[in-house]
């Protein structure tokens, strides 16, 4: 005869079920973090002897020649990324949402989502070769209009490389962000739209006054994800420019990676990692505290 679980038994079962997942999380995420934190106080070369040096790695990073340029690049990428993520996908989501035919809405959602099946790395390689290459689209276009003098290595010229990086993926229309905004727009009650229209709000005015405030939760989510992604991410730079020419596209994450695996300065790399962790934590707290979601906004209005 089956015995009914008591509340205590049920909790034990839940704990038991959580344990393997938590164990794996601890082994692969929490312990490495603590190890990295401890290692940041050592001069540790892979395969060599490690020596306790206190805060020396942190002090050295403050004097690192890449510090200002890499953080400057990171904040530039973050600002550009935030500008893109809060505009282009939202506008496209709104345009799709405004289509009358449900069939057309579905079709466009699918079409805009399809680009995500292309791996990010492959997309970058396509841009690197087909758009920015020596015989790529941009240079060939310039040659065809007789402006040979303007051709250049778009990813090797220090004057153009950063813009070439941020415009990769133009017009920034594909991907999951559109669906996130679309879901937010779909969640707005029809009565809200009707009330707004009765009050005379239409077109852009309605979009800015009604839609945007009510998708603030989505904007907040994407803002946090973009901030975290920009601070942590370096794969684009790694593949395309290795942070060059010079350090024109260096970001702290890539410098951390290079110190760890290319220069074997594991302790120093860990110190950079800890600094980046603290930066992400601070920016996320600021985001959570000062950027309001649509629920908070609605509650305030009520």
């Amino acid at each position: 005869m089956a015995r009914k679980f008591s509340g205590k038994d049920s909790s034990l079962v839940m704990y038991a079920m959580l344990t393997p997942t938590f164990g794996l999380l601890a082994v692969f995420s929490l312990v490495p973090f603590l190890w990295a934190f401890a290692t940041s106080f050592y001069d540790y070369e892979v395969g060599g002897e490690s020596k306790f040096i206190g805060l020396a790695n942190y002090v050295e990073y403050l004097h690192d020649p890449t510090l200002f340029s890499s953080f400057g690049n990171m904040f530039f990428l973050m600002c550009f990324g935030l500008m893109v993520v809060t505009t282009a996908p939202l506008i496209i989501a709104k345009l799709i949402f405004s289509l009358r035919s449900e069939r057309a809405r579905y079709l466009y959602r699918v079409l805009f989502l399809i680009p995500i099946v292309v791996p990010g790395v492959a997309g970058m390689m396509i841009w690197q070769g087909m758009i920015y290459g020596d015989s790529g689209f941009l240079n060939e276009l310039l040659r065809s209009i007789g402006r040979d003098d303007l051709t250049r290595g778009w990813l090797t010229d220090p004057r153009t490389v950063m813009w070439a990086i941020v415009f990769m993926g133009f017009p920034f229309a594909g991907g999951i962000n559109i669906l996130i905004y679309y879901a937010g727009l779909a969640g707005i009650s029809e009565s809200v739209h009707e009330a707004a229209e009765l009050d005379g709000a239409r077109g852009i005015r309605k979009f800015l006054r009604i839609d945007v405030p009510l998708v603030l939760s989505q904007i907040k989510l994407l803002t946090i994800l973009t901030v975290i992604g920009t601070v942590q991410g370096f794969e684009g730079m790694f593949i395309l420019t290795k942070g060059g020419p010079g350090f024109k596209t260096m970001v702290p994450g890539l410098w951390m990676y290079m110190n760890a695996f290319s220069f074997q300065r594991m302790g120093y790399a860990c110190a950079i990692g800890v600094i980046l962790f603290l930066l992400i934590l601070t920016l996320t707290i600021l985001n959570m505290r000062y950027l309001r979601s649509s629920e908070e906004l609605t509650a305030e209005s009520a």
Binding site: T156, P158, G244, P245, G246
Partner: peptide, 8 residues
């Protein structure tokens, strides 16, 4: 590389 390419 940067110096040779007039970057600095």
């Amino acid at each position: 590389e940067l110096f040779l390419n007039d970057g600095i």
